[in-house]
Each structure stands twice: as C-alpha cells, then as structure tokens.
Design a protein around this nucleic acid. Structure first.
Length: 214
DNA sequence: ATATCGATTATCT
DNA sequence: GATAATCGATATG
C-alpha cells in the first residue's frame, strides 16, 4: 500500500474540543486544515487528513443552507458547535459539515477533500472502486461526495453526531501536524455569493478536489 | 487537457 | 415546479 503524503505514521490522535468550533466558520475552516477525520465503527479505523474545506456563514450568507432559516433540514447548523450537518444533494450524494458558532447562530464548514491515512482498503470497498497505484488514492476522498461515501457517512446515520467525542463513531482529531502553505480561493459549485474567498486548502497537496489554476 | 451532460430526490418557492 | 455546497461518463481539442 502506498505511503501517505503528509505522514508515514499516526502517533496519537486527540479529539478537538467544542471551543474550537465555537467561532467564525472562516477561522474554523482555516484551522481544520491538517486535522484528521476518524471513523471508528467496524474493526478497522478509518483516518484521513483534512486538506480542503469551505466556510459557510449563517443566515446572511446566500450560499449557505442556513440562509433559508432554521428548518428541519438545517437545525443542526443552528444547534451547538462541533456537530455533524449531513445533507443529501443531486439525488445522489451526501456531504459533511461541522457546525460552528454558539448555539442559536448558524454557520458551518464543508469537508471537501481528505488525504487517506489508514483504512484505505475499506474506503475502496465503500466506494466500490479498485486502487491500482498511488494516483488512484485520490479517487477515495477527493471531493465532498466521495469522502462521505468512503467513510459511509449518511444523513440517517450521522446527522447531528457529536464530532468532538471519540465515543462517537465519527469525530475530528489532531496529531500535531502543522499545516504549512494555506491557499484560499472562491467556493466551488455554488451560484450565489460565488465570489467570496472562503475555500481553504493545503497548497500543493495532491488530494485537493481540483487542481489550483495558475 | 477542458467542456458538457445526465442521474435522481429532498427541499424550498 | 425548479433547483441543488456532486460525480462519472462521454465528447472534443
């Protein structure tokens, strides 16, 4: 199995605390780069480093789902910080966010791309693809829909899950990795407020969902 | 290499 | 009834 790009071992992963998420989504997004998403459900632990995210502000961001107000769909975004907001899109895909800001105020960060660290075999099974070389690893978790499929994330299973608790089947941790070059660009795939530079990625990381144009 | 398009359903207008 | 925080396949340069 090919080695990962940013680390060759996984020392010790500690959960992020709730205060980390109790802030402006743009700040949370930037600082989430280099952190780790963990799925501990089966015998195998799935881990992958966060390399690309987008910030969505509260009710005043036209591109945010929370712009429609606190509905059955978006309730988690208005709830306490550090919880999973999972939505279904295009009749095909799930996408994962983490809620930000204090309870009562909306805001979140969309997970757009991860760099797999462990459990790649199980991810490939979940994605129903075969990995033949290091280049193929991108197909596991490079894209918001892909990473959810690789991690088995669905709305029924994970929406509202507390991502700050290692007791959860899904959580976010850190292992001491320090993000170096961080790049910001406009957000992907939206039509409203498309000019806002609220997409954050590890510059040069091969697992980002799209190549950075020059 | 980039461009375009169809799939498929929850949610909102 | 229209749209959507996507993906994968196909077409074209």
């Amino acid at each position: 199995m090919p080695e990962s790009q940013t680390s060759t071992q996984t020392p010790q992963i500690r959960p992020l605390n709730r205060a980390f998420f109790n802030r402006d989504p743009r700040r949370v997004a930037r600082e989430l780069l280099g952190k780790i998403l963990i799925r501990q459900a089966s015998r195998t632990r799935l881990t992958a480093r966060i390399v690309e995210v987008e910030a969505y502000l509260g009710e005043k961001d036209p591109a945010a789902h929370s712009a429609a107000g606190n509905t059955a769909r978006t309730a988690v975004l208005f709830g306490p910080p550090g919880h999973a907001y999972v939505y279904f899109i295009y009749g095909n895909h799930y996408c994962l966010n983490v809620s930000c800001e204090p309870e009562g105020r909306a805001g979140g960060v969309l997970f757009r791309a991860l760099e797999p660290l462990s459990g790649m075999d199980e991810m490939a099974r979940a994605r129903d693809i075969e990995i033949h070389g290091p280049e193929d690893l991108r197909k596991l978790t490079s894209g918001p829909g892909r990473l959810c499929e690789a991690f088995g994330i669905t709305r029924a299973r994970d929406n509202g899950c507390d991502l700050t608790s290692a007791v959860s089947g899904l959580w976010i941790g850190e292992d001491g990795f320090r993000a170096r070059a961080i790049r910001t660009t406009h957000r992907i795939g939206i039509s409203k407020a498309a000019d806002k530079p609220w997409r954050y990625l590890l510059d040069g990381n091969p697992f980002v969902s799209r190549k950075v144009r020059k």
